[in-house]
């Protein structure tokens, strides 16, 4: 079953063409990695999938679980099971993590016609995940990402993924800025999330992550297109040779 099917996607940002005919299909149970030079359009793709305003889709289509994703508002995409772990998570002082996480989970339950989770079970669940990710549960009382280190912000993204249990998780450089131990913790989190009915689209610059989370497919994105796709050994080849041989 296809979780997501992107065909011939063309996207403009401020009148500039950033994605130029991108194709990608990810099936349930799969992990795909996207690698590529800085500025090639990786975050653009992630943002377009999540529905960030300011991106103009000029051609192509995106089907998520058989639905036209581009017709949905960002919150409706999340309700359907899409999740983006941001490359640069924002800090929101004044709104506590706890309040934010509860509002997120409640909104998914509401949209799916499920009963809201009671506060005690919610707290237990969040604390459990925080422990798994070695995040001090004190962070729940603080503002969203407020004063978090780079690595803590990334772990908070994974915490949200584990709490919200999306069908497709798009991870935009979640490994960047993590120390070696944190990388392992995050990788364990992602591996524990993997299941036969969900999928991961993982943007990364580093082969190292892929030895912890083994991808089914590795894509190379350059100048707004997938220029090469292969198995996990492609990442090793890239590590050795760089991108030039593919983009020349």
């Amino acid at each position: 079953m296809n979780l997501i099917e992107i065909s011939n996607l063309h996207v403009h940002v401020e009148g500039k063409s950033i994605l130029n005919g991108l194709d990608l299909t990810l099936r349930a149970g799969e992990v795909h990695a996207i690698m590529g030079p800085n500025g090639s359009g990786k975050s653009t793709l992630a943002n377009v999938l999540a529905g960030r305003p300011g991106y103009e889709i000029v051609d192509g289509s995106v089907a998520f679980l058989g639905q036209d994703l581009t017709a949905l508002e960002p919150d409706a995409r999340a309700h359907l099971g899409l999740f983006l772990a941001f490359q640069y998570p924002v800090e929101i002082p004044g709104v506590s993590n706890m309040e934010f996480l509860k509002a997120s989970l409640d909104s998914l339950h509401l949209a799916r016609g499920q009963d809201p989770i009671d506060t005690v079970s919610f707290m237990r669940r969040v604390r459990g995940i925080a422990e798994e990710l070695k995040l001090n549960p004190e962070f729940l009382k603080r503002g969203v990402n407020e004063g978090f280190s780079g690595g803590e912000k990334k772990r908070n993204e994974i915490l949200q993924m584990l709490l919200l249990q999306p069908r497709l998780a798009v991870l935009d450089e979640t490994d960047s800025g993590l120390d070696i131990d944190a990388l392992q913790v995050v990788a364990q989190g992602v591996n524990s999330y993997r299941a036969s009915d969900n999928g991961v689209l993982m943007i990364t610059h580093y082969q190292r992550l892929l030895s912890h989370i083994v991808p089914d497919v590795v894509h190379v994105l350059a100048a707004g297109k997938i220029v090469r796709s292969g198995g996990k050994e492609l990442a090793l080849e890239l590590e050795e040779k760089g991108y030039r041989w593919l983009t020349a």
Partner: peptide, 12 residues
């Protein structure tokens, strides 16, 4: 900040 919240399913 708005986008961060709505991307988690929270209504605008």
């Amino acid at each position: 900040s708005l986008f961060y919240l709505v991307s988690r399913g929270i209504s605008p």
